[in-house]
Design a protein around this nucleic acid. Structure first.
Lengths: 211, 211
DNA sequence: TCAAAATATGAGTAATCCTCACATTTGCAA
DNA sequence: TTGCAAATGTGAGGATTACTCATATTTTGA
């Protein structure tokens, strides 16, 4: 029916039961891999639970043993992406100490993200559903805040005299604008997308460096 | 099943049959009104076709006589919003002739949009689904391009020496960033939302006025 | 006046998410 | 080893919902 999924209560989906044995942990991996493949092929909306189970070589029941519902699978994949990318972002920004360094690091980060979005249909699809799914939206928001904090830390170092609250707002906004710019860029042609990303970079750096 | 809706082919949904008689035109209005009310109450995902029909006082069959599927109803509502707002935006920008005027007009437009998003749960919900629904995304993109063109026209007047293509990119990006900023602002608390919108305004105006 | 076109109806079809009662496997203490 | 509880596995079937279609009614226009 899918009406079940539609009536999302916003609760962050969590495993119904954490896999404790080696066997089940491997099976859960297979389920996630199958889901990822299917999302890459057809998008998460078109992903069917039965197909995920079949491709993972498990029964429907097993799927629901570890994931309370369909959204939970997508959420689990999304969480992995955020965890991975946060480490990368933190590393890129942690020892930035001057304006030039920030410009360099930020520019590289944007490039990395853009390439990632272009290359990974799964990631693209998952973050597309962000607005519609409350749990995903909250994950993305939390992720964005965490990443913005790395930026904020840099800004506070570069501009110790500035109002910290203003810097936080700026960093958060700039980061979110970046994600929006990426989504826009990949939904138009490649050429226009490149131009938009470049324009975003200029705009963001001006905001970050100048004040 | 809803699987039907899930497998969106991206086709812009169009009425299966345009209502040609007065009677049916009124009924279609009732259907849209019912849908709008339900979306406002529960969101478009939770909106049930049966409920729309019941509330509009028509049968399920009649609903499907004029709307090929569920998404088409949401799309029809979205289209109305875009049509209405484009007139407003065009009017606000059409006779801007200097930097100060642009600052004034743009700032007012942002405020209007922000208030609208805060006050209209239906609008909020519809544009939330934008990323997930291909037809909606295309509608929004087209709308955004149209609005950005009004901005581009102003910019070309203010900065005749600048590269027109660059101005177009800037205007489009700034506009899309604005929509993203609104979505972000309404998904956090009111206070932070206000701050984010204010920060966006500053950022956008700097980009638009300076270069 | 009346036939064709437009409109209206709602029971039924199909697709899909998810549950649950029961079967099997694993970990572990006696 | 043995036995038992906990963890894991299964898939037929329940439940919901988008959408169809054969049929009935109303409107239009010649």
């Amino acid at each position: 029916m899918e009406g079940r999924v539609g009536s999302q209560d916003g609760q962050i989906a969590s495993p119904r039961r954490a896999p404790s044995q080696q066997r089940s942990r491997e099976r859960v991996e297979r389920m996630l891999a199958a889901a990822s493949a299917l999302i890459g092929e057809q998008g998460s909306d078109a992903m069917r639970m039965g197909e995920v189970a079949e491709r993972a070589g498990v029964s429907i029941g097993s799927l629901y043993q570890f994931f309370p519902d369909k959204r939970a699978i997508v959420w689990a994949l999304a969480e992995r992406y955020t965890t991975e990318s946060q480490a990368c972002i933190s590393a890129a920004l942690v020892d930035v100490s001057d304006a030039e360094g920030l410009g360099q690091a930020f520019s590289e980060l944007v490039d990395i993200y853009y390439r990632l979005f272009l290359a990974e249909p799964v990631m693209r699809d998952i973050w597309s559903g962000t607005q519609a799914d409350k749990a995903l939206r909250e994950l993305e928001l939390a992720d964005s805040r965490a990443n913005a904090e790395f930026l904020t830390a840099v800004l506070k170092r570069l501009r110790p005299a500035a109002d910290p609250a203003a810097l936080e707002t700026t960093a958060f906004l700039v980061w979110q604008m970046g994600e929006a710019a990426m989504r826009l860029a990949i939904s138009v042609g490649r050429e226009e997308g490149d131009r938009l990303v470049a324009a975003y970079k200029r705009m963001a750096l001006r905001e970050l460096l100048d004040q």
